[in-house]
Amino acid sequence: MAQHMKYYYELTISCSPHVHSKTTTRTIMRDVIIALMPALIGSVYFFGLRALIVTLISVASCVFFEWAWCRLMKQHCKVYDLSAVVTGILLAFVCPVTIPYWIIVIGALFAIVLVKMLFGGIGKNVVNPALAARAFLFSWPAAMSTWVQVGWENRAGIVSAADAVTAATPMESLHAGVLPEASLLDMFLGNVGGSLGETSVVLLLLGFGYLLLRRVLSPRIPLAYFGTVAVLALLFPMGNDRLTWMAAQLCGGGLMLGALFMATDYVTSPVTKLGQVIYGVGCGVLTVMIRYFGSYNEGVSYAILIMNLCVVLLDRIGRPTKFGARKKEVAGK
């Protein structure tokens, strides 16, 4: 037995197929970071320099907490795989730009230590760290729901964000069942209030396009997600013009950011094709349900978190049959 264990550690043991590729976690994460850059630059343009500082603090704290945890627990430190950087950027993206810096640090602590490292580090977390941290940060509900007017002249102060001009977000109108005042073009470009990195549909799509080109992600989950939201919005327009309502539901809030960059997270989404479609549809249904009937304006983060928890079941659906095995036999067992 001891002999076996020795070899186990010396050799790399993995399932077939043994395909070689230059793709590593690090290259994937690097691509995701590149894909998030347009939205980050956009957020600085819309909300001012504070957006960049919030993001930098978030990234720095995520990296630091992962490194510190590994040191403390005497684990092999994998911080160079850049996944903590991605979590940091996404965490900043789902918070308002006015968020006090200390809250974002606590968010990073929660995301990295409680959600990721306690479950075993990268690849083993059950839910999306950034979204789980966002849910926890609602400990400070006022800080998490202060939305500033967009525009460089109204930008939030870097030291104190208190005197920034607040404004309603499109989601508040949508939750009340009316079309937002902001035009669809503004919502598409990102010229509306909202979380730091979620507002600009076009820049997020641009980043996702890059990931598609690099074949890092498949569009299956986002398409299922968008499709479900679109159909439900078309069917139940709450007395508004159907098409405009649908477009506003798609462009509003965190749907783009959530569907493109969070629901698609490798670790917390299903691996089978059918599972991915069901997962996307589930996210869509839950999002619309929370937006229509919930007490929060936005439901994307909770929808994705709930579906994250279902992934372990969804992975059983649509599993390919073993080569040589008959379908019936597999089903029988």
């Binding site: 606590i106 926890f136 609602f138 400990s139 400070w140 509900p141």
Partner: peptide, 12 residues
């Protein structure tokens, strides 16, 4: 006041 994490006295 203002600093404690409200979620800690919630079920979470």
């Amino acid at each position: 006041e203002g600093f404690p994490a409200m979620q800690m006295v919630m079920p979470v």
